[in-house]
């Protein structure tokens, strides 16, 4: 009898410890891992850009047409841009990686592989974690129309302005990342940006969306765009 009671209580303590450890892992350790992973991606981008190996347009004679919206030389799981959103914090910047696989989203924001390239005609759609893995989009509901979303690919600064959001929708609502997302109010083809994350904060029943349009571009030689200056 005593052995049974002892074993059961030991099991309960063990399970309790496991749960506490798991919570610590989800809340804290995924953030630590994601921060270092994101830093690594940013370092890789800076290194690549400093070497000047960014290919902005396909070499002459290559078959790819410049106006198409197919993902060009973005490599799956590789970083290709940095995103800045002043509303989420002056120092807020995250790498954008190609693809929205689970492992890719642990290292930064993910670009939907079948959507437009950065700055091109169509819809440049990006997904990010709201919670866990560095909480990149934790303050997503604070985004408002007029807020800047600035991206750089090492050659050009792209300043997008948010037009609508945060808009709550269902996970099956894939038309929010259409080239001309109907519910955004856009009616004509243009250079758009869509950000998606989960809603509620710790759940997965809905998604939060914001839409933006390309407002301005400038070469990196001209320094940071207006929206990033203090």
């Amino acid at each position: 009898m005593r052995v049974i009671v002892r074993t059961v209580s030991e099991l309960c303590i063990t399970i309790g410890t496991l749960i506490v450890l798991f919570v610590a892992y989800v809340l804290f350790w995924t953030g630590v891992k994601a921060d270092s992973a994101m830093d690594r991606q940013v370092d890789r981008l800076q290194e690549r850009w400093s070497k000047g190996t960014v290919k902005q347009s396909p070499a002459p004679g290559s078959p790819a047409a410049p106006a198409n919206t197919k993902p060009g030389p973005y490599k799956d799981g590789e970083p290709f841009a940095l995103m800045y959103i002043p509303r989420l914090g002056f120092t807020w910047n995250k790498p954008v990686l190609e693809g929205t696989k689970v492992n890719t989203l642990k290292k930064g924001l993910g670009h939907y592989a079948n959507t437009a390239r950065l700055g091109r005609k169509g819809n440049f759609a990006v997904a990010g974690h709201r919670r866990t893995y560095g909480d990149p989009f934790k303050d997503f509901p604070k985004l408002r129309a007029g807020d800047a979303v600035v991206l750089t690919d090492g050659v050009t600064w792209f300043t997008y302005r948010i037009d609508k959001g945060p808009y709550k929708t269902l996970p099956t609502d894939i038309e929010v990342i259409d080239p001309v997302p109907r519910k955004s109010g856009y009616t004509r083809p243009g250079r758009y940006l869509t950000l998606t994350t989960c809603e509620p904060e710790w759940g997965h029943s809905h998604r939060l969306i914001v839409w933006a349009h390309l407002d301005a571009t400038q070469p990196v030689e001209e320094g940071k765009p207006e929206a990033l200056r203090r």
Binding site: L105, H129, R131, T169, P171, T172, W202, H204, R207
Partner: peptide, 9 residues
């Protein structure tokens, strides 16, 4: 917490 996309990729 991983479901942040709209097309369940």
């Amino acid at each position: 917490f991983n479901d942040v996309t709209v097309n369940d990729q």
